[in-house]
Design a protein around this nucleic acid. Structure first.
Lengths: 113, 113
DNA sequence: CGGGATCCACAGAGATACTG
DNA sequence: CAGTATCTCTGTGGATCCCG
């Protein structure tokens, strides 16, 4: 399961660098954001919600986020298959920090160019 | 000056994505962090302080941060040349948000693996 | 001292097609 | 429905050398 996990810097001394490695990839934020807004979501629901993401990127990123225990994956043994994703507690704890960053970003957008 | 600026997504709708594009590059955080700790710093001082950074990466990243108006560059017409860098107000405003993220990262580091 | 120019390597993202 | 497997390509970072 956690055979690979981080592929950036293995020895993440700085907590800030560590955090940014987690959310820095292209599709992680969109997924976290979507789950934060909608609560529990299924695979194809996420795919429809996140514009431009491919199956490969979605499933790969979901697996990574799961390995960080930022999201929960709940699989139902049914036909057709059903899998539900949601933010874990770690994931929820991230949201306020992201909001702060977003506030800063909003101010920045106003003054640039 | 701002002939190129962003080379990620030109139309950054989301303020969060916008913020992450700004701080997401490899050396931007280390530079911001160093300036936040030390106040005013000279070029070679930064270089000594940031482990592993090359001239190219340092000067390029400084220019980018300057174009975002996150840092100030003050050049003195002396021989030998002297240039001082420091955080601008935008840069200072970023620090609290980063601290929040770092707090989260610290919690994450504790529970993983 | 404080950079700039050029060339190159490689990780990470994308396209496409297939499967339990 | 919920994913995987390959293969390719581009952007970002790095090495090295040069300049005012």
């Amino acid at each position: 399961m956690n055979d690979k996990k981080l592929y950036k810097s293995p020895l993440d001394d700085c907590p800030l660098t560590y955090a940014l490695n987690i959310i820095g990839n292209k599709w992680r934020l969109p997924i976290i954001w979507a789950l934060s807004k909608n609560g529990i979501m299924r695979y194809n629901e996420l795919k429809r919600n996140i514009d431009g993401i491919t199956n490969m990127m979605l499933s790969q990123t979901l697996k990574e986020l799961e390995s960080y225990e930022i999201i929960n994956r709940k699989q139902f043994m049914e036909v057709p298959p059903r899998v539900e994703y949601s933010l874990s507690e770690n994931g929820e704890n991230l949201i306020p920090a992201l909001k702060k960053l977003a506030d800063w970003g909003k101010e920045m957008q106003k003054i640039e160019y």
